[in-house]
């Protein structure tokens, strides 16, 4: 049962609160609240609301990286002019994310902390080669996002660590990234599958390819086989078909109430084709 509520305004206070142990971090609460109400998530003795911690909002270019604060809301991702210009794929993902009200509350850090295989910012962040910055009272470390998730709701974050920032390399010339989520609604739909693809397109050829899938494994995953099928290739019909086949072959989804495994594989195949067509057209 919750015994203490803290709303730190500085990073140090927040880290101190976490260091004391048995604390639950709340950012937007859009995962914490419904999961705890349904008894699927046990709240710690201390509730640490990090929403007021200064300095963790918004995006900015820092050297050859782009920093995204963990408290950036999904609405900000969707509407922020800087993000729209530098990382439009994140704005695209945010546009398909939940509803206005949830986007106003939910944060990027929360989406990562929640570690859902269907988390909609995770697939684009994977193809953007994102790195997670974690801080605790003891210090700071950085982990590659594709090594961060260990299972549904599970990450390498230790309980005293706070996700403070996400860093992605600043896009190079010719860089293209696209995201597509399967669903019947424009948003407010938990992904049954999603696909992200990025790369540098030059003279019709794609290189530095990154492919990632959502909701086909216990965590969001990179699509190494599809990447291999694409790397250095011309984006013609044959390449698209080969990449889609490779994607379909490499995913191992489960059947659940949202879709059967077979259908998910089919959709991965068709979505990869669709996203690649988008990438080919810039």
């Amino acid at each position: 049962m919750v015994e203490r509520y803290l709303a730190p305004t500085t990073l140090d206070e927040a880290l101190k609160a976490l260091a004391a142990g048995d604390a639950t971090i709340v950012a937007g609460g859009t995962d914490v609240m419904p999961q705890s109400q349904a008894g699927r998530f046990k709240l710690g003795r201390t509730l640490v609301n990090i929403r007021r911690v200064a300095g963790l909002q918004g995006g900015a270019k820092e050297g050859d990286e782009i920093r995204l604060g963990a408290l950036t809301t999904i609405s900000q991702l969707r509407e922020d002019a800087f993000i729209a210009k530098t990382l439009p794929v994140l704005a695209e993902a945010a546009d398909h994310f939940a509803s206005v009200q949830i986007r106003n509350m939910g944060t990027l850090g929360g989406n990562i902390g929640n570690a859902s295989p269907a988390g909609d910012t995770l697939v684009p962040l994977l193809v953007l080669d994102a790195v997670v910055e974690l801080r605790s009272a003891k210090g700071m470390r950085r982990l590659r996002l594709d090594e961060f998730f260990t299972g549904p709701g599970k990450t390498k974050r230790t309980p005293d660590e706070l996700i403070t920032n996400i860093f992605v390399p600043a896009p190079k010339p010719g860089f293209v990234a696209r995201f597509a989520k399967f669903g019947t609604r424009p948003a407010l739909d938990i992904s049954a599958v999603s696909v992200g693809i990025a790369g540098i397109v030059k003279d019709g050829k794609i290189s530095n390819v990154r492919v990632a899938y959502g909701a086909v494994a216990p965590t969001p995953v990179r699509g190494r086989a599809a990447e291999a099928a694409l790397e250095g290739k011309t984006l013609d019909a044959a390449t698209l078909a080969a990449a889609a086949k490779a994607a379909q072959g490499e995913v191992k989804p489960i059947s659940d109430r949202r879709a059967t495994a077979w259908y998910r594989r089919e959709m991965i195949h068709n979505l990869v084709k669709k996203v690649l067509a988008d990438v080919a057209h810039g």
Partner: peptide, 26 residues
């Protein structure tokens, strides 16, 4: 869009997350 999934007597989707009403954009 709507489907109350009943399998072996159990209701698999007792909530709006997976029981989908039509929304305004649709």
């Amino acid at each position: 869009t709507e489907d109350l999934m009943v399998r072996q007597g159990k209701v698999l989707n007792p909530g709006f997350r997976d029981y989908k009403l039509v929304t305004a954009p649709e």
